[in-house]
């Protein structure tokens, strides 16, 4: 029996636009995964702590303020420093195409830019972890 994926859906920084985060969280949950939603205004440190406490496989960041570069860097470094570098970090939000390579270079597993279809997140997780851990 494979453990279903546990996902931390996180809203870092001051940006309070949580429509996307909530819709994606429900989409993941309805697909059969366990989703923990942090609520708004989380610091990168709080997100790392929550990821460790909840023992998640994936941290999904939703950022619509444009501050994705530094937030992603801090979360990824924080996880690495806590021996949790194996936690997969994904990010979605108002991110320009030209920022994607730099985000991937710092270790973001997948960047979901504006216009991504709703099912793209689940498709990525199936591909990354195998369908048995998603559905």
């Amino acid at each position: 029996m494979h453990r279903k994926l546990r996902i931390l859906m996180a809203k870092p920084g001051l940006d309070g636009h949580d429509r996307g985060a909530k819709v994606i969280a429900r989409t993941f949950r309805d697909a059969g995964m366990e989703v923990i939603y942090t609520g708004l205004h989380q610091s990168p440190e709080q997100i790392v702590t929550a990821a460790l406490q909840e023992d998640v496989d994936v941290v999904a960041l939703s950022i619509l303020s444009g501050a994705h570069m530094s937030i992603c860097r801090k979360v990824i470094n924080g996880l690495a420093q806590s021996d949790a570098g194996d936690v997969v970090v994904i990010v979605g939000g108002t991110i320009l195409d030209q920022d994607v390579p730099a985000l991937q270079q710092m270790g973001v597993a997948r960047v979901f830019v504006p216009g991504t279809p709703l099912e793209a997140g689940i498709d990525f997780l199936r591909e990354k972890f195998g369908p048995e851990r998603v559905d």
Partner: peptide
């Protein structure tokens, strides 16, 4: 959010 620009929570968001 009622934060000053040099508040640590405001980092990367000032004037954005």
């Amino acid at each position: 959010m009622g934060l000053d620009s040099d508040d640590p929570l405001a980092e990367d968001e000032v004037g954005r």
